[in-house]
Computed example of a mutant assay.
Amino acid sequence: MGPRPQKQPRRPLDPHPVTTLGPQLRAIRENIGFTLPDMDAICGLQTGYLSQLERGRIQKPSPDVLAKLAETYQVDFTHLMQLAGYKVPPPKPPIKRHTLEGQALDATALTAREEQELFRYLHLILREKG
């Protein structure tokens, strides 16, 4: 994949978004200002395949294709999956944490190892306090 060309949008997005995959993909591509050949060069999806997808002749592309498009267009992958008819689990509600450790974990995205180190440090501080 080569560098993504920087283009200016040609027209504002429609305030009434399209609810089927193909036309929505076409609207996004045209709004960004990419042509079908641009997309072939950027993400390696052939012009003919993208054309069929945008016209609705291909209605359920693979998740790999949708991932490439989501990354290229900088749109939500889950939304494209839903438009293609894939079942997507609903987002999990955030867990309410009432402990000091839980509040610290909610404040930042930590790796499992960082969580363990943070717990050790907090427990050390609490033991020293009393």
Rank of each mutant, 00 (worst) to 15 (best):
A84F: 12
P94R: 15
A70G: 07
R97P: 00
K7I: 03
E54G: 07
R97T: 12
A67W: 06
L83T: 06
G44E: 11
H123L: 13
D38P: 04
R29T: 03
Q59L: 07
L45I: 15
Y73I: 00
I95G: 09
L110Y: 13
K68R: 15
P94D: 14
K7Y: 03
R120K: 13
G56S: 08
T72F: 07
K92D: 10
Q8V: 08
L100R: 15
T20F: 07
R120A: 13
A109W: 01
H16W: 08
Q59F: 03
A112C: 01
D14F: 01
E114M: 09
P90Q: 14
I125H: 11
R10Q: 03
S62P: 04
P12T: 01
K7F: 00
Q116M: 04
E54M: 11
L36G: 06
P91N: 13
P90T: 13
R26D: 04
G2P: 04
R127A: 13
I125Y: 09
L45S: 02
P15Q: 05
D64Q: 13
K60S: 14
D76R: 14
I125F: 11
L69N: 04
A104I: 08
Q46T: 11
L66T: 04
G130M: 07
Q6P: 00
E117V: 14
Y49W: 06
R10N: 01
F34H: 06
A112E: 12
F119Y: 11
R10L: 05
Y121G: 05
A104V: 12
P37Y: 13
D106R: 13
L110P: 04
D64R: 14
A107Y: 08
L126V: 09
N31W: 00
K87D: 14
F119N: 02
L105P: 01
Q103M: 15
K60E: 07
D106E: 10
E114D: 10
L110K: 03
I28F: 10
K68D: 02
G85L: 12
E71C: 04
F34N: 01
P91C: 10
Y49L: 04
I125L: 15
R29Q: 07
A41S: 12
C43D: 10
L50G: 03
E101P: 02
P93C: 12
